[in-house]
């Protein structure tokens, strides 16, 4: 009984996440890719001198307050 409840629970959760992923996130991702271009730098850019992001930031108290 407990096992079948767990199975139903898992199937429902996967189904709901499927809706979130394919119905909401996937169309949004198409827009995201246009706006944010290549945020993850997936495409190689020839002649790039550095892949580092410049931060030049001294940490302060307010950097630690938000989760």
């Amino acid at each position: 009984m407990l096992k079948s409840a767990e199975i139903i629970n898992t199937v429902t959760a996967v189904f709901l996440m499927g809706i979130v992923y394919y119905v909401f996130l996937t169309p949004f991702s198409l827009v995201y890719r246009v706006v944010k271009r290549d945020r993850l730098l997936l495409k190689r850019v020839s002649g790039k001198q550095s892949y580092f992001v410049v931060r030049d930031h001294t940490y302060n108290a307010s950097d630690m307050e938000k989760m």
Binding site: A13, Y22, L25, S29, K36, D38, L40, K66, M67
Partner: peptide, 25 residues
Amino acid sequence: KPLLKLGRLMATYCAFAPVGFNSFS
């Protein structure tokens, strides 16, 4: 910072969707 980490995860799924559902789930 868990929320920043979640932001990275979502950006990653957005970069690959519809691929990546198994990891997402």
